[in-house]
């Protein structure tokens, strides 16, 4: 207890939730004896909430092309663009956030790939005895095998910080092309999959989001590989995992 007289700065800091708990309690007690001041504080809070509600959505809008162009002008090297896009997405929240930014060139095809990938996710995650062809105990072999099949150096990202461990992986056919599936599981038995298919000639994209019948996917293209991180998870949680996956793949 400091017992110091309550100043106008204390009142503002109370509105902003920036007083230490002990001081906040003192100011609250002071307000309890002054209904007029208490009403003023309530109104100030209400105004602040109204401002946040009114202007908050602007931060979720897609980035206008002319602003995106400033970054292009600044000569960002291509391999960084996807990282920047991931950063954009992480903040955006809204589905279309980055889509308008990096163009829709690959969208129609991507949609099919994502439907396929989500389909494979549904087929394999309930499997109890044979969820994967090659188990995590043979991770090096699994990664080498799938890399050879896809003709690209793949990696099974370490998602232990997200609470997921590798179960294993399998080779899939995606519209006649080889595709890789890595399956992960958390301590609660929840499974997610990471799909990977070669996209020769495709340029990097931002993270994109899609949901089919409650199964959600974040997907992107980086260095001629299309990735999708799929699971029955809240969007924010899945995004976290997708970002971790991206970061792990980025580490050479």
């Amino acid at each position: 207890m400091s017992g110091a007289p309550v100043s106008e700065s204390d009142v503002q800091a109370l509105v902003d939730g920036r007083l230490a708990p002990a001081r906040a309690a003192e100011v609250e007690a002071w307000l309890a004896e002054r209904p007029e001041e208490a009403a003023r504080v309530a109104a100030l809070r209400q105004d602040r909430d109204a401002l946040r509600a009114a202007y908050g959505p602007i931060a979720a809008e897609p980035l206008p092309p002319r602003l995106a162009a400033e970054f292009a002008r600044a000569g960002t090297p291509p391999w960084r663009r996807a990282a920047a896009a991931a950063a954009i997405f992480a903040l955006g929240g809204a589905a279309g956030w980055a889509a308008g930014y990096f163009g829709h060139g690959h969208d129609p095809e991507r949609r099919d790939v994502i439907r396929e990938a989500i389909g494979a996710h549904r087929v394999f995650i309930p499997e109890v005895r044979h969820p994967v062809e090659v188990a995590a105990s043979e991770e090096a072999h699994l990664v080498a095998w799938l890399s050879k099949k896809l003709g690209h150096a793949l990696k099974a990202p370490d998602l232990s910080a997200q609470g997921f461990r590798l179960v294993g992986g399998r080779l899939l056919s995606d519209n006649g092309r080889p595709a890789a599936l890595f399956m992960y599981e958390n301590s609660a038995g929840l499974r997610i999959t990471i799909h990977c298919v070669a996209e020769p000639g495709a340029s990097e994209t931002a993270f994109r989001y899609r949901e089919i019948d409650g199964v959600a996917a974040f997907y992107w293209i980086d260095e001629h590989l299309a990735y999708a991180v799929i699971g029955k998870l809240q969007r924010d949680r899945l995004l976290e995992i997708a970002r971790a996956t991206y970061a792990a793949l980025e580490k050479k």
Partner: peptide
């Protein structure tokens, strides 16, 4: 350097919100 660009990019939504209100 490019990492800094990504940091700047992260702030664009907030900059737009503030500029719009201002």
């Amino acid at each position: 350097m490019s990492g800094v660009r990504a940091l700047i990019l992260e702030q664009v939504p907030a900059l737009r919100r503030y500029a719009r209100a201002l």
